[in-house]
Nucleic acid binder design. Structure first.
Length: 291
DNA sequence: TGCCAGGCAGATG
DNA sequence: CATCTGCATGGC
């Protein structure tokens, strides 16, 4: 067996906060273990991730000779400092970015990401995580899992969810979103929309494509585009971000969503979506005064 | 207990 | 355009 084939992987890295990143409302399939470790499934790979000082540690279920899928998912090569340098010299944003050094954007699989955000509307993050896990266990393919860990499953394919049917999906506690998820899955499964192609389309075109799907409006479209389709200017505006933008930039006036969207795109620059992630994290997990 | 949650679609002025 | 409402479910 070549020495490069191993179930474990380590990488030295600066400016990466694994826990903040996995727990920032981008991806819903991660389970926090004790001592700051996480387990989840990337594609068809089970992984356990942890961080100590300047190292990311990964443990897979089966030996790997190529970890690029992990590097890609975690965006370990992404130059965070360079991106933050493009932010406007805007005190509230600069402060938010300083509060969460090392918070990155992930690069998820487009279908997994789109589907999980279809489930997200007017649901709390904890509930989205529950429904996500339920869907994986019911309709996802089992993946190799190390002993002493609960059997893991991949996220279900569009075909699997299309075949399941709306009433069955409703059993997974997603309520009225079952119809949206089922229709979206059917469209993707029959090829009328190619999610991978969104990665090379201009942002406005990619948006228009996604919002033709039932249950996908501007917010969910931008989540999928930002978190999985290489669209760093996408700027999802949910209730938290809307509140934050109104408070920080509009003196708490009731500015309508389209106006906020327009403002954000002009104000935050080429990595607007990353700025959004810092503002979101700060709004959702306000940190008590820094020492 | 009631309010609200990483919204959207359809209906009304 | 802008605003309003119904939609399921469950955490706090």
């Amino acid at each position: 067996m070549p020495p490069s084939l191993s179930t474990s992987f380590q990488l030295r890295i600066q400016d990466y906060d694994l826990s903040a990143t996995l727990d920032s409302g981008q991806a819903f399939g991660w389970t926090r273990l004790e001592n700051h470790a996480w387990t989840g499934v990337i594609g068809y790979q089970w992984v356990r991730l942890s961080q100590s000082n300047d190292r990311i540690h990964a443990e897979a279920a089966i030996p790997q000779d190529d970890w690029s899928w992990l590097v890609d998912y975690l965006q370990l090569d992404f130059d965070l400092k360079n991106a933050i340098d493009t932010f406007p010299p805007d005190p509230p944003l600069q402060a938010a970015a300083r509060h969460y050094p090392g918070l990155h954007l992930l690069r998820q699989a487009p279908w997994t990401c789109l589907a999980s955000f279809i489930l997200s509307s007017t649901k709390q993050i904890v509930q989205i995580q529950q429904v996500y896990q339920l869907l994986c266990r019911e309709y996802g393919n089992p993946v190799p899992t190390p002993p002493h860990f609960r059997q893991a499953h991949a996220f279900p394919t569009p075909q699997a969810l299309a075949n399941a049917g709306e009433p069955a999906l409703r059993q997974c506690r997603m309520g009225f979103r079952a119809k949206y998820l089922h229709q979206a899955a059917s469209h993707i499964a029959n090829g009328s929309i190619n999610l991978e192609s969104l990665r090379s389309l201009p942002l406005p075109i990619a948006r228009r494509t996604l919002t033709t799907l039932p249950g996908v409006g501007p917010k969910i479209a931008d989540c999928a585009l930002l978190f999985s389709c290489d669209q760093p200017r996408a700027f999802p505006i949910d209730v938290w971000i809307a509140r934050t933008l109104r408070k920080l930039y509009f003196k708490d006036q009731p500015v309508p969503l389209p106006k906020l969207q327009q403002f954000a795109e002009h104000h935050f620059g080429p990595f607007a979506g990353l700025a959004q992630q810092y503002l979101f994290h700060q709004a959702r997990k306000p940190r008590q005064q820094n020492p």
